[in-house]
Amino acid sequence: MSLLKIRNLTVEFDTAQGPFRAVDGIDVEVSEREVLAIVGESGSGKSVSMLAVMGLLPPTAKITADEITYAGRDMLKMSGAERRKIIGKEISMIFQEPISSLNPSFTCGFQIEEVLHRHLGLKGRAAKARALELFEAVGIPDPERRLKSYPHQLSGGQCQRVMIAMAIACKPRLLIADEPTTALDVTIQKQILDLLMGLQEEYGMGLIMITHDMGVVAETADRVSVQFKGRKMEEADVLSLFEAPQHPYTRALLAALPENATGDRLLTVADGWEGVQ
C-alpha cells in the first residue's frame, strides 16, 4: 500500500535574481516496508522536497503540488495542528548533522521524553522507562548514564543513535533519513546503516533514504530515484539501476565512482553527458 504519495511537487524560492525553482515537478511514492533512495548531488532538490512534505521550509518557500497524500489523507488540506499530529509521530525524520540537530541545552533523556510526552502522553516514570528501552534498542552503550548526558558529551555516532531513538520513539510508519551517515566515519556509518535497516525490517516502516553516496544506495535501497537540478531523471528498482542504468545522467554518476575507474582517468558527468542543463 502506498504510504506517501507526491505528485508534481514544485518548490520555489524568491531570490534577488527572481524566483528560483529548487524542485521542479517531482513525483515520489513510497510504500510500507519499502526503502526508497533519493540520490542526487548538491542542488538536486533531494532534501528540499522532503522538507516541504514535513512542513519544515521557511514561509518564503512557495510549495505547490497536485497531490501530497499520507496513508490516503490529503496533507495539502491539513491544518497545522493536524499536520503536527502526524509529523514526528507517524512520519519522522533524521538529519545529516546529529550534533547540531539535538538541543545542546537539554539532556538526551529530556529530549526523547519530550517526544514521548507530546505524542504519546507518557510522563514521569513511564516516559523514563520507554526512553531507556529506546536507547537500548538503538544500541547506545551504558544507556542509563547516557540519558543524563548532554549532546556534547557524546560522539557523532552516539548522537545519531539518539536522533534515531527519537525518530522511532512513536513507531513511525515512515522514516525520512536525510544523509544520515554523511558526517560519520565509515565504520560508524556501517553501524548506523545496519541499525536503520534492522529497525526498518523489524517495524516494517517505509524508509526514504536521501543520499549522494551510490555505495549507501547499493546497500540499502529497494527502489531508487535519481534527481538532478530539481527534476527526476530516472526511477528504477535498485538492481536494474546498477545493472542497466537508463538515463545518461545515472550512467555518468556511476562512471564517476572511483571503483568504476577504467584505466587512469575517471569519467566525469561533464564528459559523459551534456543533457538537461
Partner: peptide
C-alpha cells in the same frame, strides 16, 4: 579488514543477494 568491510560498494552481485534476502523476509512475514 574492518575498514574495508565497512566501506559501502556498488557491487551488482551484492545488491542481488540483498534484494533476494529482503524479499524472502517480507514475503515470509
Amino acid at each position: 579488514k574492518t575498514l574495508l568491510a565497512a566501506t559501502p560498494v556498488a557491487d551488482v552481485d551484492k545488491i542481488r543477494e540483498r534484494v533476494a534476502r529482503r524479499k524472502a523476509l517480507f514475503e515470509g512475514a
